[in-house]
Design a protein around this nucleic acid. Structure first.
Lengths: 164, 164
DNA sequence: TATTGTTATACTCTATAACTATA
DNA sequence: TATAGTTATAGAGTATAACAATA
């Protein structure tokens, strides 16, 4: 589907002077309907909001969760390696790690082989906490499944597999 | 697929003192692999970057495009109606419209029936510009199709249709 | 009382640039 | 010289709260 101006015409507004109230679902999206980016963005907002809510009690946001998960699975990584793998700016990762280190979930250990870099590790407390976060994240994932359907969720993961 | 800590074990780092360089694609994502939100977020970033680049010459970003498209298809809408339909905060829309109005693409007209509200319209210049933006956006959409495949793009639009 | 548009504040995130200490 | 981590700044985007004008 291509987006052209001729696809839809502007809908008529009340022309009698007494403007009718317009409900949100009456408003046409026109070319936006054909844009994958629009749907993906709206879906991503929904999914992040559910994640933030589901992990609200433990106060962990999606980016923090991704950082903890990658460090947990690859202990000893440098900040640069984590940043590159997750597509986070290294300057941004500094603040994320400051916060996670203050919460005693992560520790930076000076590398002996390259004194410019830090080896990232979960603390013991961090390991325990991450296990809990993963259980909550799995719960969030079940919300996604309930929202779009089991088969659709799996199809989505397949389609987007090489963006990870 | 559920995300549990036992799915993958931390991979061994070089233990011989001479730390080996780790390439990004060697770093395991662990539980993130099973999260739709992670894949969707990475895809959304890619797609927005392509949109911003493809419409770089005309300096239009995704949110601006969505606002112009909805106003173009529904002339006379109030700011509240546009904000609600697109899921934008009304406070944020004020600044978006300030910018679009300064560029003479949009005009706010005081409503005669409800003097609190403004009726949003494209200017003549805005109509012409939007037609061009739509052609560029369609070009961007072809990039998406080339990246994930025609059938996958259509399937994606189907799966996410009710988030629009 | 409630709603529309506005202003303001704070926090998240992205994108840069520059600095330091190393390599 | 180049890289790792840090600090700083600017702009998007999100989330609130409060205010004036109007309903």
């Amino acid at each position: 589907m291509t987006a052209t101006a001729s696809q839809t015409s502007p809908r008529k507004r009340a022309g009698n002077g007494a403007a009718r109230r317009i409900d949100a679902d009456e408003i046409g999206l026109d070319a936006l309907i054909g844009h994958a980016g629009y749907a993906v963005r709206r879906f991503q907002i929904w999914i992040f909001q559910d994640f933030i809510k589901t992990l609200g009690d433990v106060d962990i946001r999606p980016t923090q969760y991704s950082v903890l998960t990658v460090i947990g699975a690859n202990p000893g990584l440098s900040q640069m390696a984590v940043a590159k793998r997750l597509g986070i700016e290294r300057a941004r990762l500094v603040h994320l790690l400051d916060s996670l280190e203050q919460r005693r979930l992560v520790k930076r250990i000076k590398s002996k082989t390259d004194r410019r870099s830090h080896a990232m590790h979960l603390t013991t407390q961090g390991e325990t906490a991450l296990a809990k976060f993963k259980r909550l994240a799995a719960e969030h994932e079940r919300h996604v499944e309930a929202r779009i359907g089991k088969a659709n969720r799996e199809r989505l993961l397949q389609i987007l597999a090489d963006f990870t």
